[in-house]
């Protein structure tokens, strides 16, 4: 059976939007947040499941979110340390095939070296966007 399940951790703006998008294109989506009021950010059309719980707890991930069946996990809580810990759990213990994590602190990226965990850095995206707007390619510039 082909896995079609996505687990989203953290129902902030980013998490809730990704959940809605993946649900719209037909993925089986579970979203976890420790605060049930966060699910208000989910669109009315969201067709997945929400789980209230602490995703740093392995039993919540395994028993409530059934993460072992997931093809991907997207980790977007507002704490870098929590995100990094859950990413390590998903990589080293649960063995989720695709892991995406948001990290505000670029330094924390060093702690996912030699893994398949992929990080989204809002800081780098903002710098890139700024450089684009200003019409300057800083990658080229820094190599010259």
């Amino acid at each position: 059976m082909k896995k079609n399940k996505s687990v989203i951790i953290g129902s902030g703006r980013l998490g809730a939007s990704i959940a809605a998008m993946l649900s719209d294109i037909g993925n089986d989506v579970v979203i976890i947040d420790k605060d049930d009021t966060s699910f208000r950010k989910l669109a009315d059309t969201f067709g997945g499941y929400d789980v209230i719980g602490d995703a740093t707890d392995l039993s919540i991930l395994e028993n409530e979110a059934l993460i072992k069946e997931a093809k991907e996990v997207i980790i977007t809580t507002d704490s870098d340390n929590v995100n990094l810990f859950i990413a390590h759990l998903c990589f080293y213990i649960i063995d989720v095939p695709n892991i995406y994590v948001r990290l505000s602190d670029v330094d924390k990226g060093k702690l996912i070296k030699n893994t398949t965990i992929q990080a989204i850095y809002p800081f780098i995206l903002s710098i890139d966007e700024f450089m684009n707007m200003r019409g300057l390619n800083h990658h080229e510039n820094s190599h010259s």
Binding site: T56, S79, N81, V82, F85, H88, K110, L111
Partner: peptide, 15 residues
């Protein structure tokens, strides 16, 4: 905070 302790330890060890 357990998670903060984890990240501090891993940072200390790896970096």
């Amino acid at each position: 905070n357990d998670i903060d302790n984890y990240v501090a330890c891993i940072t200390a060890k790896k970096l």
